[in-house]
Design a protein around this nucleic acid. Structure first.
Lengths: 144, 144
DNA sequence: CTAAAAAAGGACAATATTGTCTTAAATTAA
DNA sequence: TTAATTTAAGACAATATTGTCCTTTTTTAG
């Protein structure tokens, strides 16, 4: 469904969101530990999230990653996915055809439409804040 | 969603199904041409489909690939996907956690359940024969 | 001002996936 | 029986993805 990079990105963002809600800045090291991901690889992914404006970073001692209050409440799961995996999840043909569309559909085109729609809708209506809440309440987990 | 190999597998199977319905055996070369796929790579994929019993192969002149009438009507899309990509599409956690389940869910676990269910249901109820019919009627396409 | 801490960036390495090439085995038709 | 045709199989190559390491830049605290 998502690339490994994207999976890490989502997990990291949820964790940063949770910490930001508590007013805490969080280091790469802590992120990697908390979401059980390879640190250096996670660093690369964080750079993309920062460039996309989803999270902010600060260098130096006491530095780390943080989400602005505004981002915290408005960022949708879809934005994180898009930042890392692009539009492949939302667009692309189920059978890999480049020209697949209503006019010239692949054999599974119609079959995939509702599923893709539902997925798209879910990603676009789910907020990072909402996911962070479940984590805060101990109902969901980011490791193992 | 699916691997490239799986996309080719689905396209190839649909095309073989269509030809088998007409009583025709079809060569690798023709398959690759009709579904616009790399021939040698497609050969590897065909070997897997043969091993899984989804299609049959015959060597020598007049040889090629064919689907038995029985397979033609009973094979589900899910079986082709499973033969090539295994159960990753049906099982696996959306965020890549190994131990994600009802008891210890990842933050998107619940959100993904209905989507995965719908996808699973669609794959398990869609027959290859049905997809081949759309192709035969010129309503769907396997190239570009 | 300096040392330490942290992210940024670039080069590199490992692995997985996709794709190719060559030879072997089987089968058919002449 | 032989030559041609076709799939099977194995080794190899190219590319993409995942992951690591090292250096640079920025910032803070002392």
């Amino acid at each position: 469904m998502f690339s490994k990079a994207c999976e890490y990105a989502i997990r990291a963002t949820i964790y940063i969101a949770l910490q930001s809600q508590e007013g805490r800045r969080i280091t790469l090291k802590d992120i990697a530990k908390e979401i059980d991901s390879p640190e250096a690889f996670t660093a690369k992914i964080m750079q993309q999230l920062v460039k996309q404006g989803i999270v902010d970073s600060l260098k130096g001692p006491t530095g780390g990653f943080v989400m602005e209050p505004h981002n915290l409440f408005t960022t949708k799961l879809s934005e994180v996915v898009y930042a890392i995996d692009g539009d492949s999840v939302f667009k692309g043909c189920g059978l890999g055809l480049k020209m697949c569309n209503e006019k010239k559909p692949c054999p599974v085109h119609e079959k995939f439409i509702s599923i893709r729609q539902e997925l798209k809708h879910m990603l676009e209506t789910t907020t990072i804040e909402e996911l962070a809440l479940g984590l805060k309440q101990g109902m969901t987990f980011l490791k193992r």
